[in-house]
Each structure stands twice: as C-alpha cells, then as structure tokens.
C-alpha cells in the first residue's frame, strides 16, 4: 500500500506534496536539484493569454518569518507554455496543475480552454486571488458572485477539473468557497498570499516597487490553518492546502485542518530540496502518529478521527 497516495478530482497523486504556483517556475530550475517525478504534482507558474513582464523591482522584501512578493504574474503567455514548458515537463512522471490567470473573464476562459487540452495538464487552478496585479486577479477573488460567474465560465470550457485558488484577503472566506463550489468548482486551493507592505526606515519609501505585495511563508501558516478548518467543514469538495508549510509535521497539521493534499511555496526558496525531504519524512511522521494512510488525517482537527474526504 502506498500510504501517501491520494485521489482527487483529475489527480491520482503518488503523494500529496506539490510545489505551489509561482514558487517553482515551470520546474526547470529545480530539476537541476532532483528528479521532478518524485513530486505528487506540480502547480506551474500562473499563465495569461499574452506574455507579461510583471512589476518593476524590487519585487521581494523580507518580513518576520515571511516574505512579501510583487512579481506581477510574469509569464511567457499561454502559447509558449503550451509549446515549450508543458512538453518539456512531459518527460517527468508527474501530473501538472496549470494556474490560469487573466484580467477579464474572456482571458481566463481562453487560457483555460487552451491549456486544459495539454496531455499532462490534469487540473486547472483558477487564480482569482493574485494581489499584485492592478486588473483582474484579486477583483475576481473578493466578490462571491463574480468568482462564481468566472468559475462557471471556465468550467464550461475546461477539459479537466477546475480548482479555485481562494484569497485570504476577504471578510468571509466560507462564502467565497461556497459560491465557487455551487458554481461547479471541483476543488479549492487555499490560501494565496495576504496583502502586506513594508516601508524603508531610512528613506520612508515602500521597499517594494509595487508598494504592496503578497505575504507568504511561515508567518501566514496559522491563518491558512484557520481558514482551511472553517472552509473544509462548509464545503464537500477537496482542498489543497498551502501557506507557510516547511516540514512533514506542517503537512499533517494542514491535513488535520481539512486539506486533502498540500502545496509548498516559499520554503522552496530557502531549501531547494524541501519537497523531496518532506515526502521522505512523511511516512516516519505517520508512524509516530500511528496513522496508516495520509488521507486518514484529513479533517481530524474537527471530526474526531473520521475520514471526511477520501476520493478512493
């Protein structure tokens, strides 16, 4: 028995560990460190219809136990992703979750239609929560009706299941989750970064050229845990959890909160080997906890040990 195997809509994962979108490019850089086939899946960098340069630099700033980024969805556009990046990734035995972004419903729909046809794209992650672009992204992520409308439109054209990436920058994340679930989302990924800012003490100017950026890293882990805990009890679609995960113990905590798989973001920057290390460590942590299978952890934080979502 593979104790780490997880079945989710569109995704047969050999383990529940995947690098998070925007923290792993299209895999080429980390392929120099290890065989990408060890990963459960890869969430590739957000893709828009046309190439985008993104924001001016500085694009990152450090914070206590975290970092702010304002990259601005830099990517080569869907055509290049389809002709160069995805075929290159096909050499690895790993399902791809394509992160889809845009400024209009039409752009999201067009990117989703095209990228969902790639043979190694097994699911889409609808990026309605990027805080770093002026148009689109966050707007779609803060109003339940608009998020639902976008989800419906993308579901209609996508050849693969659609996961919606929720923003924590809302008053009521449960309402957002329910809205996209009702609109047909196959799953949720959460949380994206929290909007934040730093100001240079010497110059009195914002450190990021974009002024504000998205906070990630261990600093946001408790927020992610709380939100997944609330949302997982209110919806019946699976959640891929993310937000400050650094270790196998963190993974278990996310599962206990209600996640069925997890993504690793900022930690890749600190240790390029963090994903394979967590995959290696997970069975030992399960042993210590006397748990047979990782899926048995999902929702334990609120359901007294009964299995909630287990796609098998």
């Amino acid at each position: 028995m593979n104790r780490l195997a997880v079945e989710l809509p569109g995704l047969s994962l050999k383990n529940p560990i995947m690098p998070a979108s925007g923290c792993f490019g299209f895999g080429r850089e980390y392929a120099k460190f290890y065989d990408l086939s060890v990963l459960g899946a890869i969430m590739i960098k957000a893709t828009t219809l046309e190439a985008r340069f993104g924001n001016p630099t500085p694009r990152v700033a450090e914070t206590p136990s975290g970092m702010l980024n304002a990259i601005g969805l830099q990517n080569p556009g869907v055509d290049v992703v389809l002709t160069e990046e995805l075929p290159w990734l096909a050499q690895y035995d790993v399902p791809i979750i394509a992160n889809v972004a845009g400024s209009t419903v039409e752009e999201y729909v067009e990117v989703a239609r095209r990228i969902s046809k790639a043979p190694n794209v097994h699911a889409l992650e609808l990026n309605i929560s990027c805080p770093n672009v002026k148009k689109g992204g966050i707007a779609f992520g803060t109003v339940p009706e608009i998020a639902a409308e976008l989800t419906r439109a993308v579901k209609e054209v996508s050849d693969v299941p659609v996961y919606v990436k929720l923003s924590p920058n809302v008053t009521n994340i449960v309402a957002m989750a329910k809205a996209v679930e009702q609109a047909g989302a196959d799953g949720l990924t959460m949380i994206n970064t929290l909007l934040g800012m730093r100001i240079d003490v010497k110059t009195a100017k914002p450190i990021l050229a974009n002024r504000t950026g998205g906070l990630s890293g261990p600093a946001i882990k408790p927020i992610a845990i709380r939100m997944i805990y609330e949302v997982s009890q209110a919806v019946s679609i699976p959640i891929i959890g993310m937000g400050g995960i650094e270790s196998a113990e963190d993974v278990i905590e996310f599962f206990y909160a209600g996640a069925s798989a997890v993504a690793i973001g900022t930690a890749n920057f600190i240790d390029p080997y963090v994903c394979p290390n967590i995959i290696r460590d997970l069975p030992n942590v399960l042993d210590e906890l006397r748990i047979d299978h990782i899926s048995q952890c999902t929702g334990r934080g609120w359901n007294n040990g009964q299995t909630v979502y287990c796609g098998t």
Partner: peptide, 24 residues
C-alpha cells in the same frame, strides 16, 4: 538585485532587455 530563490524560479530579480516589452 534583491533575490528570493537565487536559482531562477521566483522571478524576483529580473531586469529588462533593451527594445522589448516582455523580454527579461
């Protein structure tokens, strides 16, 4: 430049290439 990952994955330290809107 301020860096995140240092290996090319995070796109924090990009600079522009002359005569292009998107090249980096």
């Amino acid at each position: 430049e301020r860096m995140g990952c240092g290996v090319g994955a995070c796109f924090a330290c990009v600079c522009r290439v002359p005569h292009s809107e998107t090249a980096y």
